[in-house]
Amino acid sequence: MDDDTSDFGSFYEADNEDETNTIINMSYKVLVPVKRVIDYAVKIRVRPDKTGVETANVKMSVNPFDEIAVEEAIRMKEAGFASEVVAVSLGPKTVQETIRNSIAMGADKGIHIETGTADLQPLGVAKVLKKLAETEKPNLIILGKQAIDDDANQTAQMLAGLLNWPQATFASKIEVDKANNSVKVTREIDGGLETLSMKMPAIISCDLRLNEPRYAKLQNIMKSKKAELKVQTPQDLGVDISNKIKTISVEEPAKRSGGIKVDSVDQIVQNLKKHALI
């Protein structure tokens, strides 16, 4: 009986053929902003003049959280949800390497927003991405939850605010519901997990456990070197990326010196007593 009912249901759906086809054929475009940062394994050095950290002759990589975002977008494409994945990066010409890395992983095209040596901060980046969202019209924008250089954890939320789109930050699971044009996101909160459902277009920021990014195949790395990137400037987009938070100085944190090594549990206990901890 149940089966009959559902057959009936699909019979009626056939009447709405146009609408049904629109839903089935609708293919999502995913925009993934990626940032070039000092490689996570590099021990950073503060510049002696305290203006920042040393970046000359230092290994640079894709921000690990952004790589997770790229991976997620590519998986959506492989699952048939997305038809196009666009990687975008802001910065000097060197960030093209980061965009090509995303293309080697599986992104379809890349956009480089040339900002020269400008001090990029999340608000300026979000303003540029908002403009791109208006021209590229993505259904989803997936970002890393934070970059491991400034640790700001702001761009996704700011972009969502500027676009007035729903946001799901710190995502650990994403399920696309194509029939309803929505996406269900499980996100990491203090003390556990939370699930949100968002109509697209929407913003998602990725946490660590969302996926494990793939390694690009050598053949794809070679191909990505030839990929043509669209290059624009903030001026082209009519965006002012200046900001009002000025860095006064960057210093090394107070060093913590190692203490003593002990040989026995009793000595640990004595030390805890000495510090009045037990």
């Binding site: 954890n153 702001q154 700011m158 605010g161 909160i189 203090d190």
Partner: peptide, 23 residues
Amino acid sequence: ATNFGKNFIPRVAALLDVGAVSD
């Protein structure tokens, strides 16, 4: 600077067209 605060305050900052300082 918990997941609660980090989640919403940048959105507020963007709506006010100002930057935000984390942590």
